[in-house]
Write a protein that binds this DNA or RNA. Sequence first.
DNA 1: GGAAAACTACGTTGTGCTAC
DNA 2: GTAGCACAACGTAGTTTTCC
Length: 312
Amino acid sequence: MTAYPSDRPSDRAGEPTLEPTEFRALPARKAPGSIARSGVMPPVPERHGRRTPAGRLDAVDRSMTDTDRALLGDLDRFGFLTTNQLQLLHFSTNASELAAARRTYRALTRLAQLGVVEHLDRRVGGVRAGSASYVWRVGPVGHRLLLGDTAARLRRKEPSLRTLDHRLAVADAAVRLTLASRAGSFELLKLTTEPDSWQSFLGPGAVRQVLKPDAFAVTAIDDYEDYWYLEIDRATESLPTIVRKSLQYARYVRTGDAVQRYGVNPLVVWLVPDEKRKQAIENAIATSDLDLRLFRFAVQDAITALIAGGAG
DNA sequence: GGAAAACTACGTTGTGCTAC
DNA sequence: GTAGCACAACGTAGTTTTCC
């Protein structure tokens, strides 16, 4: 997992948090006796085919701390987050990284025991074996807490590696922006991910089209607000596909809808895995009669520097 | 020379204990 | 009850050795 700068002040519970597929219940490597002792609720893992009684749901809800709710909110928003990302977002002010990791682990394990969250069997990333983290998502109880007791039962399957990689890359960008914002590089006024980031508009022939950026961000530096459509590229799409999507952004700009809505046209940021891919995409767009001023290109870990530089 | 097995390194997970 | 520390266990990538 990539390292991020850490700048989080103490407990941010209550602040707006960063704004989802059937899995096996979390298997504990060893008997989780200590968790059962310390938890307010006795750990009763969600079983397949058995719905949590409303009374128990309410008890789980009451037992949750503000940080628990913030964790659930972020998992709802991003679909998938690694242990490391959750640690950076919610526990990075502890005395040491180890202590933060400990707190993160304990909080997630407790929520997993309650069925509020769950992790995938698969681990991703890491140069060394141990650096691969669990990937977490909203659990069945968490799903009902978010959507109410009448929420339809989740029917989920294991995401493909490609899907998971992309979703985690989107989350990675969002985490970087959040941490940079906390460090004072800029103000992060708004950050939405799919499907909240989608924008419908009338294209040629009055045909309704939907722009589907991976994320939409509004940042501010001094008195200037900047608007960004974020496209996270994992080098899995062909260049013609990238160009088609870029053409769609250009069509949207021509409608004038964005200027009417925001006062300016948002910039489209292509975030790529490496310099070679960045060059390839930039060349493909440049040779497609597209206005390059509408686009910015950066490798994934340079997103904060690009955003901090403003749109001007 | 290439494949497979064995070994090594190291980050993360998990537990027990202690202090506050 | 919560959080931190210490330590053991685990899992996996990289490296080295062995065998065919």
